[in-house]
Design a protein around this nucleic acid. Structure first.
Lengths: 146, 146
DNA sequence: ATTTTTGCAAACCTTTTGCATGGAA
DNA sequence: TTCCATGCAAAAGGTTTGCAAAAAT
């Protein structure tokens, strides 16, 4: 969970101005505990009459991705979505039912990268790992229903 | 490397009709050894005057993804691209310089999935791993130039 | 003869851009 | 007061859809 303040602070630290639209988006993003699309963010801002324009949503997301506070996801459907995250490691498990996401830590991925480099001769520069599945509470809900 | 014939055969096996546009696309896809976008495929078909329409390109790619002969990639830039692949394992290393792709095998990913499931409690249903880096020949080319 | 597939063009959806205005430093 | 950021609306991409014609079975 990333706090609204952390996002605002990150804008500041990175040398961006603290504007009302950015504060508003920080709040909206922090309020989400799962992934969200740009459109959803825009819709939320419209719903609460925050008056943040479409372009600003995209521009802010770009900045946040740059800063490392938001990560872009590509859902299995091909849709683009985003999740807020701590600016360091980089893997999430996303619940395919409720959309909530959880940090997956390293879990041995570094070793996989080394192994792939060894086998293929490629010099690995970047990677993306996206995991989808049922979170514990959706599993429970599902078995309750059966 | 996937052959044109293998693709045509796969259409047949899966119960789709063997049409001229599909044969043509099979040839074009097999001719690519790196990743390609839908637009590039369309451009290639136009260039060779194969008269395959845009819609058919997208429709055929959808089918091939379904069958498992083509995989959708999301490049670090956010662009959608595709690669032909054997219909089983599922990881590629893509050269960030020339676009060529190579099979990365399993390399311990199954173990990572187990570890993530154990740590997070999620029941992992699917995952996507995309690796980007310099292929051996681009590495060589680069060091030659310095 | 029947059913699938196709090409075309238009519709759609998402993201980006240009530019004058407004706000932060 | 200077420069960055915003909103708007239009443009640009990329993908999908409706439909009548053409091709495969």
């Amino acid at each position: 969970m990333v706090s609204s303040d952390a996002i605002v602070l990150a804008f500041d630290t990175a040398g961006y101005r603290l504007t009302e639209p950015r504060r508003a988006l920080a709040r909206l993003i922090a309020a989400h505990d799962g992934h969200f699309t740009a459109e959803e963010l825009l819709a939320a801002s419209t719903r609460e009459r925050l008056g943040v324009g479409r372009a600003t949503v995209f521009r802010s997301l770009d900045i946040l991705i740059d800063i490392g506070l938001v990560e872009r996801l590509d859902l299995p459907t091909g849709e683009h979505a985003f999740v807020a995250c701590e600016p360091s490691h980089h893997h999430h498990v996303v619940c395919s039912n409720c959309g909530r996401s959880t940090d997956a830590g390293d879990s041995g991925i570094a070793a996989v990268l080394d192994e792939v480099a060894r086998r293929t001769g490629y010099r690995i520069e970047s990677h993306r790992l996206e995991l989808f599945g049922l979170c514990p509470s959706c599993q429970a809900a599902r078995s309750r229903r059966t």
